[in-house]
Deep mutational scan, measured.
Amino acid sequence: EDEVKKIVKRLIENGVDDEQIKEIVKRQGVDERIVDKVLKELK
């Protein structure tokens, strides 16, 4: 989960929008619920 957080944070800093972040992270095989949780925490 910490790995996911790092990735998502980097994507947000690069101006990637939420939908794209979800797609990218899902392609890495991460559960969507984890992605949603991380996005909420970082906003």
Results as ranks from 00 to 15, higher is better:
Ile21Thr: 02
Glu1Ala: 09
Lys5Arg: 13
Ile12Cys: 03
Asp18Val: 14
Val38Asp: 00
Glu23Cys: 05
Gly29Thr: 02
Arg10Glu: 14
Lys6Ala: 15
Lys9Cys: 05
Lys37Met: 08
Gly15Glu: 05
Glu3Gln: 10
Asp18Lys: 09
Gln28Arg: 11
Val8Cys: 04
Arg27Ile: 08
Ile21Arg: 00
Glu32Ala: 12
Lys37Thr: 07
Lys5Ile: 10
Lys40Ile: 11
Val8Glu: 00
Asp17Tyr: 07
Val35Ser: 02
Leu11Arg: 00
Ile34Thr: 12
Leu39Tyr: 02
Val8Pro: 00
Asp31Thr: 07
Lys37Arg: 12
Lys37Ile: 07
Val16Gln: 08
Ile21Pro: 00
Lys26Val: 15
Leu11Val: 00
Val38Gly: 00
Arg27Tyr: 04
Ile24Lys: 05
Leu11Ile: 01
Val35Phe: 07
Lys22Pro: 02
Glu3Gly: 09
Asn14Trp: 14
Gly15Ile: 02
Ile34Cys: 03
Glu41Ile: 03
Val4Thr: 05
Arg33Thr: 13
Asp36Pro: 00
Glu19Trp: 10
Lys40Arg: 10
Lys26Trp: 02
Glu13Arg: 08
Val35Leu: 13
Glu13Tyr: 07
Lys26Cys: 06
Lys5Trp: 03
Leu42Gln: 06
Asp2Glu: 14
Asp31Trp: 02
Leu42Trp: 01
Asp18Pro: 13
Val25His: 02
Glu3Ser: 11
Lys5Thr: 08
Val35Ile: 15
Val38Ile: 15
Glu41Leu: 02
Val38His: 03
Gly29Asp: 04
Arg33Pro: 05
Lys40Asp: 15
Arg33Lys: 13
Lys6Ser: 12
Leu39Ser: 01
Glu1Gln: 09
Asp31Phe: 03
Leu39Gln: 01
Ile24Asn: 04
Glu13Lys: 10
Asp31Gly: 05
Asp36Gly: 03
Glu1His: 12
Val30Cys: 05
Val4Gly: 01
Asn14Ala: 15
Arg10Asn: 11
Glu23Met: 07
Glu23Asp: 10
Asp18Thr: 12
Asp2Gly: 08
Ile7Arg: 08
Val25Arg: 00
Ile21His: 00
Glu19Gln: 12
Glu19Ala: 14
Gln20Leu: 13
Asp31Cys: 04
Val35Lys: 00
Gly15Thr: 02
Glu41Ala: 04
Asp17Arg: 12
Lys26Ser: 12
Glu3Thr: 09
Gln20Val: 11
Glu32Thr: 09
Lys5Glu: 06
Asp18Ala: 13
Glu23Lys: 10
Val4Leu: 10
Lys43Asp: 15
Val4Gln: 01
Leu11Ala: 02
Arg27Met: 13
Leu11Thr: 00
Glu41Trp: 03
Arg27Trp: 04
Val4Lys: 01
Asp17Trp: 06
Val8Ser: 01
Val30Glu: 02
Arg10Tyr: 07
Lys22Asn: 03
Arg33Asp: 11
Ile12Ser: 05
Val25Trp: 01
Ile34Ser: 05
Glu19Phe: 09
Lys43Ala: 13
Val35His: 00
Gly15Ala: 05
Val35Gly: 01
Lys37His: 08
Val30Gly: 08
Gln20Asn: 10
Glu41Asn: 05
Glu41Pro: 00
Glu19Arg: 09
Val4Ala: 06
Asp31Pro: 13
Asp18Arg: 09
Ile12Glu: 02
Val35Met: 06
Glu3Asn: 10
Asp18Leu: 12
Asp31Gln: 08
Lys43Trp: 07
Ile34Asp: 05
Lys43Arg: 12
Ile12Gln: 11
Glu1Tyr: 14
Arg10Lys: 15
Gln28Val: 11
Asp31Ser: 11
Asp17Met: 11
Val4Asn: 01
Glu41Cys: 04
Asp36Lys: 07
